[in-house]
């Protein structure tokens, strides 16, 4: 059996680095197309609406709405380190004027979760240089 990290960490590439650096500094960044204004997420090589490759990383509002959620009570197809954190509340969050993203919501009882709930970003470090956004109820 090979040794695996407790929880998965992203590989940092030039394309995605600003996102992780932004999260370290308490910012939520997404690629916004300078031609048509579409916000693209997850990171894309060109704008999925118009095909422009000019999509500077842009600071987003930190509030959004829960489009859907699930409460994972077991770890499957992810790393065993998540076990300590179960149940994990996983959401699809529609960022205001942004895009939809997968994210954890913390600081709420699973029974109190609701579709349509308003949430705000919180940031956790994943290393000295990088962070990851999560959310909590507004």
């Amino acid at each position: 059996m090979s040794i695996v990290p407790n929880k998965p960490l992203p590989e940092i590439h030039e394309l995605t680095k600003p996102f992780w650096e932004g999260a370290k500094n308490g910012k939520l960044l997404m690629q916004k197309c300078s031609k048509c204004g579409t916000v693209n997420f997850q990171p894309k090589p060109w704008c999925i609406e118009c095909g422009s490759r000019d999509m500077p990383w842009t600071e987003m509002k930190q509030e959004g709405t829960v489009y859907s959620y699930t409460v994972s009570r077991t770890v499957a197809m992810n790393y065993p380190g998540w076990k300590e954190e179960l149940p994990v509340i996983l959401c699809l969050v529609d960022i205001d004027d942004g895009a939809r993203m997968y994210a954890q919501v913390k600081g709420v009882d699973p029974e109190d979760m609701k579709v349509g709930m308003r949430v705000t970003a919180i940031f956790e470090d994943i290393s000295e240089e990088y962070g990851i956004p999560k959310f909590k109820p507004l």
Binding site: L9, P10, P43, S72, N78, Y79, V88, L90
Partner: peptide
């Protein structure tokens, strides 16, 4: 994967549960 695994996506069951 980088924008799913670290965000707590527990595979197909969680994805479809959403």
């Amino acid at each position: 994967w980088d924008f799913q695994g670290p965000f707590g996506v527990m595979g197909a069951t969680a994805q479809f549960a959403l």
